[in-house]
């Protein structure tokens, strides 16, 4: 899957994917200075960030998973724990969507989940935007 650049993706597209997408998350590549770089330097991945579009609003968490190394280093973020937590959350969404046919208890025990991560280019992304459940009010 081709990932979009953080600096050029339209915010309304991000909102739409977070609200209506099957898994409620978006993966992006970091490039030149984008709004997501600013968020990553001012917040941690545990913080909720509210994004407003035309008549819609959704809250998400921003995980700087930084696989290309383009995310600027800052004191607030621990990339290793961000990645670990991101994988757990993606695994939860994937399981809830009914793809965990063999009922793997952990992400590391599932080859199917690993294939899914490859399909969505997880290991080529720098940012995971994960919708916070129950916070959209479109």
């Amino acid at each position: 899957m081709e990932l979009k650049n953080a600096s050029s993706v339209p915010i309304d597209e991000v909102i739409s994917e977070l609200i209506y997408g099957e898994f409620g998350f978006v993966l992006l590549k970091a490039d030149v200075d984008s709004v997501f770089d600013k968020i990553a330097t001012n917040t941690t991945y545990q913080d909720g960030i509210r994004v407003s579009g035309e008549g819609t609003q959704v809250t998400f968490r921003l995980f700087p998973i930084n696989y290309t190394g383009n995310v600027k280093n800052n004191r607030l973020q621990n990339y290793a724990s961000a990645r670990g937590d991101a994988v757990k959350n993606v695994f939860k969404r994937w399981t809830e969507a009914g793809y965990n046919k063999r009922n793997a208890k952990k992400p590391e025990n599932s080859d199917d989940f690993f294939k899914f991560l490859e399909e969505i280019s997880f290991m080529k992304a720098d940012y995971l935007l994960l919708r916070v459940e129950g916070e959209s009010d479109d």
Binding site: P10, I11, D12, D47, I49, R50, S52
Partner: peptide, 11 residues
């Protein structure tokens, strides 16, 4: 404290 994104300055 909250963190918010808006698509434009006019918004």
């Amino acid at each position: 404290i909250s963190n918010n994104i808006y698509s434009s300055m006019s918004q």
